[in-house]
Design a protein around this nucleic acid. Structure first.
Lengths: 214, 214
DNA sequence: TGATTGATTTTTGCATACAATATTACGCAT
DNA sequence: ATGCGTAATATTGTATGCAAAAATCAATCA
């Protein structure tokens, strides 16, 4: 049994900083203080710089030359772009999942949002927000598409960072989710794709309204 | 007129290495020799390490701990995944372009593949390969979606690195391209999306055949 | 009091030095 | 000649030192 242990400091630092970003400890727009990280993580600047450069490549961190590194903050336009990307990716993911007939995965997906009926209690709404996240993550996961999954990790964080709650109320989206699930149950890849695309494009529209009204 | 000049060495090194990868000078699978880069670029290891770490984040380079850095080589499965991603992204891009009515852009897109008629001469085939690249890049460009464009830079390289020529012969794809262009001319976003999705999914299928027959 | 200039401090970016690990070369024994 | 073990070498990963740029703060002047 080969003991896979990674003793590379840079990698630990990378995970550490990424978790700080994902966990909200380093909020969007925050300037990265390297010396603080030096003290806190007990390493020199070198592995920290390596980790930060990598996170720049992954678009978690933005570099402003000779000025500093900042946790990437997404504006409303970029959030709209992101929902378009989600529409495209999750749409093709669910379509391929259905067309390629991954039965177990589809049965799991078909079980989402089963026990949600309007009106939702406050507690239900919390569960619903989590179910929403899980549903969309699971679709990407079941696509068995590594490239898509890499992208998902990034934008899952972005969405969380941008808006704590949901873009639209459950009263509006539950019906859409049920429509998607029904298309999955009917093994209709084309329809499921279109439903999920419309679902995300509507959220994109809502964001657009928020942008202009600000 | 503000003179934007970037005197950061790391950035120049980053561009240098990326261009070496994009230009085929550093082919997929190639091990990166840092000392060679030190001599060649006349800088120390520090900016080279920064550039490489960033390229690791961008998935241009793969890191094998304590062993080395290698230009990412994509296998057949990953290429299939990539075509699924392209299907999803370019599909939604053209749909939104049409639905949002960006007239000038659409007129440009409608002019692609105009002067290509079968049979194609050898010279035509070269032009066709270029037109193919331009067409798909232009769609992404006109999406005005920065996130998509960032992704496009990466996968444009990947496709080039994987297979020099086209996945399928012009005899097969020209008709599909004309169908996409016609949908654009008709300002039918839904149809254009579906045409471009099918276009890429067929290429994905061809790649799948190549995988299994190897 | 408020603004501007100058000095101090901080931080970034680069180079270099060193330690740990992996690769290669070489010699020896079978 | 071939396989194995050890030494030499190369490369990675880390730490540190230093110069240049930026930010902060203080003092001066209006």
């Amino acid at each position: 049994m080969p003991k896979i242990e990674n003793t590379i400091l840079s990698d630990h630092v990378y995970e550490g900083i990424r978790d700080m970003i994902l966990g909200g400890e380093l909020p969007p727009g925050q300037k990265i203080n390297k010396n603080e990280l030096v003290e806190r993580l007990g390493v020199s600047l070198t592995p920290i710089n390596a980790a930060i450069s990598r996170l720049v490549g992954e678009k978690f961190i933005e570099q402003q030359s000779r000025y500093g590194f900042f946790v990437k903050a997404f504006d409303c336009k970029e959030m709209q772009d992101l929902y378009a990307v989600r529409a495209g990716l999750e749409g093709i993911a669910i379509r391929l999942c259905i067309e390629n007939g991954c039965e177990e995965e589809l049965q799991h997906l078909a079980s989402f949002f089963e026990d949600f009926r309007l009106p939702l209690s406050e507690d239900d709404k919390k569960r619903y927000a989590q179910e929403d996240k899980d549903f969309h993550s699971t679709i990407v996961k079941y696509s068995a598409n590594q490239i898509m999954q890499d992208m998902n990790l990034s934008y899952a964080y972005i969405i969380r960072s941008y808006q704590k709650g949901l873009i639209r109320a459950p009263e509006e989206t539950l019906e859409e989710h049920h429509a998607i699930v029904n298309a999955i149950k009917g093994r209709d890849g084309f329809l499921a794709q279109e439903m999920i695309i419309q679902h995300h494009l509507k959220s994109k529209e809502v964001l657009k309204q928020q942008c202009s009204s600000e």
